[in-house]
Amino acid sequence: MRLEPKPAPGLVSALLYPAGAILATLVIASVLVLIAGASPFTVFGLVAKGAAGSRFALLETLTRATPLIFTGLAVAVAFHAKLWNIGAEAQLYIGGVVTAVLGTGALPLPGPLLVPLIALCAMVAGALLLLGPAVLKTRFGVDEVVTTLLLNFIVLLFVSLLLEGPLKDPMGMGWPQSAALVGEARLPRLIHGKRLHLGFVIALVAALAVWVILRKTALGYEMRAVGNNIQAARFAGIPVNRVLMKTALLSGGLAALAGFSEVAGLKGNLSLDLSPGFGYTGIVVAMLALLHPLGVVVSAIFVAGIFVGADAMSRAAGVPSYIAQVMVATALLTMVTAIMLTRYRIRWR
């Protein structure tokens, strides 16, 4: 078996392959569902219903998608410049820490001033967290995959230290969580009595902003040039290292917004279960969207829907909700395969 390059794919095949990828995902997941002793049609039906079958389900999916849009955008931005930021999880937590520190009464400001200020500080903190690996990469050639990945554990332990110490809520009955945010620091709910909050709107605006940056600005052009061919970019006089730094700042800032939005919008305080791996899932979200910022919104909602729907399905059908993880992972693998097939032809013998 061997691969041979193929001319550029037409529009039809560009749409057909991803559709095929989704179909393949369902087929593969069906096998597992059958092993679990349920009917795939029932199970997928329940997942879909649980994700979008009611107003409540839909709002829950969008709520879950909000942090994924931010981390997905963070990864998409970085990957465009081939800066392999695997540390969105850490940047998310740092954003959460800043929000908890500044939002629990430290700054006596009115909401319209306080919320943007906290968001900005969270972004700066996340940006600086990714700047370190970027400097190590550009100055000493240290692989950022390793540094950003390991920082996730360091930051999580750091957060745990804070929550057992200085940030620990005195009224928290001993739970490792911070005090609740003051009212002024919180993001308003979009619909009264529902969990969906302003963070979702901010995420949509962020996606649009990232799209503009990538497509319309000189910086976005530089990032794509560096990512596509770093040697050619250097030859053309693009300041490669500076571009990578800017990319790191932008990516880290976006991931930190996920933490800000979860703490200020949804949870109301900082705890160690702030993120069930939103940073890592952001990588899947970005890859499924082929790194397109507006596609990130769609794929974040898709992935969130599978998770939310699988929870509901699990209660009703008795198939473990881990099927969601399998489906998302399979979707990533089939998607990557589909992308390869749009560029190469497989020849058997």
């Binding site: 000189a218 040039a225 061919n229």
Partner: peptide, 21 residues
């Protein structure tokens, strides 16, 4: 191929790579 041009970017983007600023 590796230094003069960025293969996956289009003709326009490659044309301005030295003067986009």
């Amino acid at each position: 191929h590796t230094i003069g041009m960025i293969g996956d970017m289009n003709v326009i983007e490659n044309a301005i790579s030295e003067s986009y600023r």
